[in-house]
Nucleic acid binder design. Sequence first.
DNA 1: TAAATTTGCGTAACTAATTACGTAATTAAT
DNA 2: ATTAATTACGTAATTAGTTACGCAAATTTA
Lengths: 322, 322
Amino acid sequence: MEFYKMAGIKSIGSRLRMLTNKITDDAAQIYKLYNIEMQPKWFPVFYALSEGNEKTITGIAQEIGHSHPSVSKIISEMIEDGLIEKKDNSDARRSMVGLSEKGMSYKEKIQDQYTDVEDAIEALNRQATNDLWKAIEEWEFLLEQKTLLRRVIEQKKKRESNAVLIASFKPEYANAFRQLNEEWISSYFKMEEADYRSLDNPQEYILDQGGHILVALLNDEVVGVCALMAMHDGEHAFELAKMAVSPSAQGKSIGWLLGQAALNKAASLGAKKVYLESNTILKPAISLYHKLGFQKIAGHPTPYERCNIQMAVDINPSHKKS
Amino acid sequence: MEFYKMAGIKSIGSRLRMLTNKITDDAAQIYKLYNIEMQPKWFPVFYALSEGNEKTITGIAQEIGHSHPSVSKIISEMIEDGLIEKKDNSDARRSMVGLSEKGMSYKEKIQDQYTDVEDAIEALNRQATNDLWKAIEEWEFLLEQKTLLRRVIEQKKKRESNAVLIASFKPEYANAFRQLNEEWISSYFKMEEADYRSLDNPQEYILDQGGHILVALLNDEVVGVCALMAMHDGEHAFELAKMAVSPSAQGKSIGWLLGQAALNKAASLGAKKVYLESNTILKPAISLYHKLGFQKIAGHPTPYERCNIQMAVDINPSHKKS
DNA sequence: TAAATTTGCGTAACTAATTACGTAATTAAT
DNA sequence: ATTAATTACGTAATTAGTTACGCAAATTTA
């Protein structure tokens, strides 16, 4: 299949399906070769019951990794063929099933086929330098740990956050700075006096006071903002405030990038601490602050009604690098 | 999947199917993640048309390894969605199709997804010590060379011919010796005077004349016979005759085992040549004799009407071993 | 040039799985 | 002792493919 080589490993799903079909097609003919009237799809169920003990439909389904309707259908086909019998049912919900006498006799009959097929496939597998059987097992394990979807999501996030640029404030960002903040504030709380002051006049109320504003740009569009406001309580410290990320750009770690950049900025300005104020209903935000190193503190005066948690982080030289 | 480990590599078909399903399930969600309205099953067709040139249904089918009805269905779905257009048809049988403008625009849109998925799967594959992608490729190649069915058939034959025992004549085999021969002779020709003589009195007409009879036993049942009859024309030679294999035991190389054993026997008795007489309508038999080393000769007198070919092989010491 | 064959495609029916949903039996909670 | 929740199963609809078959167009052969 030249095509799949061209299309690359992202086509592995289609390619796997083709190989699977090729193998199961042959499987059907192999049963005929041994004069065993059994459909290939029955195999897992048959094998699961081969030890002789009785099992339930869902039990078998879990064991062989099928859905229960699939097993249910297979079982009824096998009952019709006389290979399986319904057994005891003290619990009338359950369908205890086991091999019938005929099914047991098949167990003997099928042994030669088992060994031949096992030997043939093992030899085939050994002929290859990459062990397909082991590779499947490893993939199953790795996908159990983290699904393909999650792996792709992470890859996407990684690529997208690489494309995000953090820049310093320019007058043309003023609009976005106001809008992104007003959007989330008014959806969770209501805009307060102090909000209007700083959002309407960032130059005067933030920058001219010794503060800074950082913006996150994705394809030249402002998708996130935050401000470092100089504090005047003795220590050399900043307040991290007015952080907002566009809902359309969520999931790209923009908050984290902005936070990191803000802490770096504070460090480069010689700050010892960064404070912030927030509200515990903003769970993702609080969790982001934690990741950035902020710890809960108390006792600072605040002009904001919505504030019910205060946090702070000590700045150490490592922030200048990361 | 503990179960499949237990069931062994013969369950690789079922196991592959499960892995395939798991992967394609995630694939569907990945398309959603990128807001691309395309079904995973469309991917091979879309990719095959991505270069921009027009192709036919069967052309695409061959390229991507699907059946043409499958491609036909996919194409009509994609036309309905506006991704594909029917193009020129100077040959009215053919359906030339190519990406529409919308389809072309998807090409751009999907690039990020391609790279993310490719990177994610590549990383996943590298995490495993056995390379699944390469293993699939090798299996495809090996199965192209020899299908799984043929591999199993060969394994079966090998096992079964290992179970065949070659033994010397005993009086209780006389019946089988007669029946197996009469069966095939009378189905192709008719029994002649000389047949009755030797089949009815093997002791007198074969063994007492310095000849030998070999039988092939499978589970203590006679499934094949042949005779070495001493020749009296100067040279120290035997005639290989009365070879018969039970139809129920065909395909187990019993003819070859008997032939080999007969030649070994002749060699151990110091013979220089072995002759035989046959008929060219018995193609499998002639081909077997060739494999055993017999060459066509002419000119020997024969009592049999049905004989239209004579063959002989020189015995050399190597026969004693093999 | 007519007849036979090949090619290309579409439709229908089938396959081996899935999800969605309903229902009866059992178990847990009030 | 009811009521609510859970468990086990079956049925129906869906999915992504497959073979089987038939028809019309094109090509080859006579």
